[in-house]
Design a protein around this nucleic acid. Structure first.
Lengths: 172, 172
DNA sequence: TGAGATATGTCAACAAGGCTGACATATCAT
DNA sequence: ATGATATGTCAGCCTTGTTGACATATCTCA
């Protein structure tokens, strides 16, 4: 992916301010926060014999009933072989159901079973608890600001897609 | 894209207010943001025959000269066997140097070589570019707010340690 | 001084979850 | 009818995590 270099105009002669001082704090906090954020569901997933890959698939399918394989691959950014391995297990264990597409019968439309929705919800609530604890006692505009920041961190090419996925069709 | 928001009204009022409504937006944005955030360094690491594990080790050693094995293990939360595999490669390829401890000669103190510091800095600048692009045009207090949020997302048991690692010894 | 405790290194085996390449099938679109 | 598309599958490989067992050097303390 080619990077779009943000042209910030503050030019002290010969020095590129942006590349100059690494934002070590945000880099490292992002690492630690993500490390703990994904660790919550792990214990529960273990009980089911699932891993993080299963979680991701279940989450997005549960949140987007009728999701196709191609769309899921685009979200996860993995190969179809990798996806297929975990997806097969989720279908066998009855957490996800795969139906033939109606408009295009080559497609497989994925749906979470009641069992799948229940587990996905359970894990989402766990992570929500951490998120809400972090937001508590912060300024009320914090949530929107963090949300905006995370969205802007995403590859610009993909941010519209993500925005649509996360927030649904925009009314504007 | 349909949604599957479970219509839930509290069965036991007051019991689990926190787990009530999943924060799907922040959960998913965090996933997408992290996905892209770690993807930047990957291309460069490839050229060196390194992976993400090497990056994490090099980063924290470069940032904390004299780091011990035990401290590094505590940061990364992996086993010493996993660490040793990548660490051995980094030492062989002269990106990291291991010296015997002075106070305690059982310890190994880790230092990045000039080559190691250079690569770590290169990768940090790459990630900083993304971080700064996201922050540009946002309110000036955004950075501190995001930083505060990420810190609060970390396990409370560990947040003091992380704070110290990231921001250095606090004067207050 | 001698007995643990501690810090690290190492061997071996295994598992999860990425990857590539090749090929098969069904279905759609022209 | 033909080529493109969506998916499935086999086979093998890589990275990076895991557990368990054991070795060595060094420190600490009774």
């Amino acid at each position: 992916m080619p990077d779009a270099i943000p042209a910030l105009k503050s030019h002290h002669p010969g020095k590129d301010i942006l590349a100059e001082t690494p934002a070590y704090d945000l880099i490292e906090l992002f690492f630690f926060a993500y490390r703990d954020f994904v660790s919550d569901p792990d214990r529960i997933l273990d009980e089911y014999g699932f891993g993080r890959a299963h979680h991701r698939v279940m989450h997005f399918v549960s949140r987007n009933p009728g999701l196709t394989i191609a769309e899921l691959l685009d979200i996860l950014r993995i190969t179809k072989q990798s996806l297929n391995r975990v997806l097969k297990e989720l279908i066998e264990k009855d957490f996800i159901e795969s139906r033939m597409g109606t408009a295009d019968r080559r497609q497989r439309l994925l749906f979470a079973t009641p069992q799948g929705r229940e587990l996905a919800l359970k894990l989402a609530k766990l992570q929500t608890r951490r998120i809400m604890r972090a937001l508590s006692d912060m300024e009320p505009e914090a949530k929107d600001l963090v949300s905006q920041y995370l969205l802007r961190l995403i590859d610009p090419d993909d941010s519209a897609h993500v925005k649509h996925l996360v927030f649904g069709p925009e009314e504007t």
